[in-house]
């Protein structure tokens, strides 16, 4: 059993799932679900569709270069079976997976790092530019025309109406 990758979203296709389309030049397009198949039929480019792996890789959202990806690769030469090797591989899979997950989390963290400072900078700039819109509270008290008309307190009237009903 081989776990294939979806042509559109690059997710894993487990046996018995999805559909495959064979073009006349014998290129096989495998799709994990009808969503991906439909998008392919609509001639969408996976690099331009935001939820695909191809887009995320292209735009630096995901980690692309890492030694952990080297393990999951199609090899042309079949490996000779060795019990010890198989055992070690099974053990290693878990560990490598853990390493990959932590590295990915770190990558995202690093990517998000500058965000807060950037937002603060933008807010500061806006405040500086539009300071004329803001008036000091003391000025507002002096000149009543600057304030909005006084709001009627709704809660009180409601309480009264309740009383009337009773």
């Amino acid at each position: 059993m081989r776990l294939e990758k979806c042509w559109f979203c690059s997710s894993t296709i487990y046996p018995g799932h999805g559909i495959q389309f064979v073009r006349n030049d014998a290129k096989i397009f495998r799709f994990c679900r009808s969503k991906c198949h439909k998008n392919f039929k609509m001639k969408r480019n996976p690099r331009k569709v935001k939820w695909t792996k191809a887009y995320r890789r292209l735009h630096g959202k995901d980690m692309t270069q890492d030694s952990t990806f080297e393990f999951e690769r199609k090899r042309n030469r079949p490996e000779r079976y060795d019990r010890n090797l198989a055992e070690n591989t099974l053990k290693a899979i878990k560990k490598i997976d853990k390493v990959r997950v932590t590295r990915e989390a770190k990558h995202i963290e690093r990517r998000m790092k500058g965000k807060k400072g950037k937002e603060l900078q933008e807010a500061k700039k806006e405040l500086e530019q539009n300071i004329s819109l803001v008036k000091a509270p003391a000025v507002l008290k002096e000149d009543l025309s600057l304030t909005l008309p006084i709001k009627v307190k709704v809660s009180q009237t409601q309480a009264e109406s309740h009383l009337m009903e009773e």
Binding site: G16, I19, Q20, F21, V22
Partner: peptide, 15 residues
């Protein structure tokens, strides 16, 4: 027209 395979997935061709 797609046709089911023995493992439950489907296959279809161009023509």
């Amino acid at each position: 027209m797609q046709r089911g395979r023995c493992d439950g997935s489907e296959v279809k061709f161009d023509d």
